[in-house]
Each structure stands twice: as structure tokens, then as C-alpha cells.
Nucleic acid binder design. Structure first.
Lengths: 232, 232
DNA sequence: GACCGGAAATGGTCTGAGGACTTACGCTTC
DNA sequence: GAAGCGTAAGTCCTCAGACCATTTCCGGTC
């Protein structure tokens, strides 16, 4: 087996076997090299691999540690790769988001949480009164994120967040011919979701969320916008 | 900015900017080092990071390439990290699987595909006639995988597959007091799913799939099995 | 034209050295 | 005695150079 792969397997097994639990500290690099039988370069490449996946963390001057192994945190690491997926693949991912967020919205509607309703109402008020693309994206994320969080499953929140982040790289809300029509439809979609949550109607909430995201998919398919450079 | 991070950002931007599309070849390492202003070690660690995420691939003796950037392939890379998540987190993930696979099963039921039904029936026949834990897991995976594939969204198939693979690390089907009861319930659950698909009833299919996976969640919560070592 | 062997290109691994950051400890000071 | 501070040890980070392993390509041979 190749050196880096051997180191990778060794590190993974130290965690998988339970020898090192969440947040545990690894031995220093020289010791690990000796234990695994590879050079420091190979070991470090293996460490970087697992760090990229959110499984371990290196802290300069301190040591190398197992991460908290929190599923939401690990899923969030996907944004590094998901953000590079071309539009075709993003549409596949949006179906995942539609299904998951529809479910989370239904869960949120099933709960009795006046605070959530007030916060969502506030977000929508601000959202409806702005035409700034950056602010629209920010408030939209806040709205959906609050609902998913209320849904109760952090993993779902993280996953939908990653996908939404990728979708946000495409400029739907760009000044142009369709801007006003799109913005109005989007605003109405948000209101429909909030109404369903306010009336404690999970089925209506699921439908409204599903329709709202399906609408986004349609716009992406129709407009085929190009990804924009990173925001400031 | 640290050297490795600088290299990482540079590589990502080469892809994000469209300068290098799917399957494109990177310049040789020495050239990249020069271009990015970092040493070869730092560059290689950055390359390993992106390789771990399924974004790029190094081929010994040939070169370094952008991957196909296929969402399903990228999601499959998650299994490396998901397999290390403790039971608590796995239960959160199983809710994701339940929702997604329920959706995919409904989609499969909505299609007219006699081939699928025949194949699923064959799998279930074999599944019902074995008590070998390894074979049970294999056939179970084949059953669910065939349904998700028929659902039509490869991303969903990959995601549910990753989560199912993690669940499979826990020995539910272990010879013991409850083995027979659990096996029978599981078999009935599979039949219910196949029946719903055969009768082209998406709603029933979604319900059956959801109930089947919810049952798995209950078993995991109740039995709290320990992860088993890797299979041969 | 097909096969084969060697040379070139390229990533993989190892070693050694020095730098940068964090942490802990002992000292000083109040 | 407690707080602040500086030093030293521990640890990861980066660089440089050399050599190995694999793939690819090209020319020669049959």
C-alpha cells in the first residue's frame, strides 16, 4: 500500500476503533510517523485529507485533534466541493434541498413557536422592502435557515444550507427585464410559507416550501445564469 | 495567508473561474508551485485536501486533473467521514435518509418499470431465505439502491447510500434473542414497499419506505449496538 | 503496421533544516 | 497570595533537495 494511503488508513482506524474519541489529541507528528511507518510528508498529506473532510483538526503550535465529529459540521465541509459543481449538478442537488426543506418546514409548522413566527415576519418585512441583490440573498438565507433550525434536525439545516449556498452563486436577482416579476413571485412564496407555519398547517407548509424551491429550480433552468465571482 | 491555504485557494479559483473545467489537466507540480508561490510540500498538501473532497485527482506518472465534478461522486466521498460519526449523529442522518428515500421510492412507484419489479422481487426472495448477516446487509443495500436509482436522481442515490453504509456498521442483524422478530419485521417492510411500487401507488410507497426506515431508527435507538470492525 | 524498449515527463516518498505559533512554567511585582 | 510577564519547551508549518515509481511517448525493430 502506498505510504500516504497507509497513513490515512492508520489515522482513520485510530478513530474508528474508538482508541481516540471526539476532540481527542493525536500523538505528535514524529511519534505518529514512527507508529505508522511513514515519513512526515506522507503523514501530513494524510492529515490534510482528513482535515478537509472535517474529521480531524490541526492547530498550529498546539497539536492535532479529532474533531467533534458533529454531523452538521462535517456536512458543512461539503460546501468547499459543492461550490465547484456545475449548474447541471446543482439542479440535482436542488431536488434534495426541496425534499428536505419541505420536510423541515412541515416540522416547524407542527411546533408552537410564536417567537419563530415573529422573527420570520420581521425578516420578510425587510426582504420585501429591498431590491439589493446581496441583501436579498442574505435575508433569504436567514429566512430558510431559521425555518430549518426550527425543524429540529441540525443535519438537515446544514445540508440545505450547503445547497442553498451553492445556488446563491448564480445571479437570479440581477437587475433585468424579469427582476420585478421574479422578486414578487419569490416574496409571495415566502409569505405562503409563513402563513402555513402561522396556521400550524404542516401539510400546507410542506407544499408551500416545495413549490417555492421548485420555482427556484425553474428559474435556474430557464435563465441558466453564469456563476458570479465571490462576493466581497 | 498561510502557504497551504494560499495554494488551496489558488487551485479552487482555477476551477471556480472556469479556467479549468471538469477533467481538465493541471500544469505539472513545479509549474504550479511557481505560479502559486508556494513550495512543493505545501502545494501537495493542498492537492490532497481537494482530492479528499473529490474535486481533483492525481494520477501517478500522468498528472493532476479536475474530477468530473459529478455531484453523486462528490457526495460518495462523504462516506470517508460519515463512517466515523458516532451513533448519536447517525440517528440524525437517518432522518435525512428516511425523507429522501421516501421521496425516491414514491418516484420509483410513479414509473412504469416491470424490470424493476422483477429485480426487486428476486432480491427479496433471496433476502427472505437467508439468515447470514453479511448477505442480509448486501441484499438490503441492493434493494434500496435499485429503488433509489429508479427514482431518477443520482444525487439522492449517492446520499442515501452513504448514510445506509454508515448504518450498516452497526450490527442489528446479529444472532440473538430478537433476531427472528427483527428479521421478520424487516422482510415484511420490504414486501410492503415492493407491493406499493407494483401497484403504482406513490403515496403508499412513500409511507412504506418511511415506516421501514423509521423502524430501523427505532432498533438503533433501542439496541444501541457498538460499531463492528470492518468486514473482510 | 504491430510490437517493443528506452527516454522523458510526472507524481510519490523520504530526509533534514529552520520558522511560527501555542502552551506551560517560573519569576517578578503588587 | 494573586496577577502579570517573559522565557523555554512543545508542536505544527514551510521550505529545499534528492531519489523512487509510474505513466506516457517516441523511435527502432520485426
Amino acid at each position: 500500500m502506498a505510504a500516504t494511503d497507509k497513513a490515512l488508513a492508520g489515522l482513520r482506524q485510530m478513530i474508528a476503533s474508538g482508541q481516540l474519541g471526539p476532540r481527542a489529541k493525536f500523538p505528535p507528528e514524529p511519534e505518529l510517523c514512527d507508529h505508522l511507518g511513514v515519513s512526515r510528508s506522507s503523514l501530513r498529506e494524510a492529515v490534510r485529507s482528513l482535515a478537509a473532510l472535517g474529521v480531524i483538526e490541526s492547530r498550529h503550535g498546539s497539536g492535532t485533534y479529532v474533531s467533534a465529529l458533529d454531523p452538521a459540521a462535517i456536512i458543512s465541509r461539503f460546501s468547499l466541493s459543492v461550490e465547484l459543481i456545475p449548474l447541471e449538478g446543482v439542479l440535482e442537488l436542488l431536488e434534495v434541498r426541496r425534499v428536505l426543506e419541505s420536510h423541515a418546514t412541515a416540522s416547524a409548522a407542527a411546533r408552537q413557536d410564536p417567537d419563530l413566527e415573529a422573527r420570520l415576519g420581521d425578516i420578510l418585512d425587510r426582504l420585501e422592502s429591498t431590491t439589493d441583490a446581496i441583501e436579498i440573498q442574505f435575508l433569504d438565507a436567514e429566512f430558510h435557515n431559521a425555518i430549518c433550525t426550527a425543524g429540529g434536525n441540525p443535519t438537515v439545516t446544514a445540508l440545505t444550507g450547503v445547497i442553498r449556498g451553492r445556488g446563491g452563486h448564480y445571479r437570479i436577482f440581477e437587475p433585468g427585464a424579469d427582476f420585478d416579476a421574479i422578486k414578487q413571485t419569490s416574496d409571495r412564496g415566502h409569505r405562503a410559507i409563513l402563513d402555513a407555519i402561522s396556521t400550524r398547517d404542516p401539510a400546507a407548509a410542506a407544499t408551500a416550501a416545495s413549490a417555492h424551491i421548485a420555482q427556484t429550480e425553474l428559474w435556474l433552468r430557464a435563465l441558466r445564469p453564469v456563476p458570479r465571482p465571490d462576493l466581497p
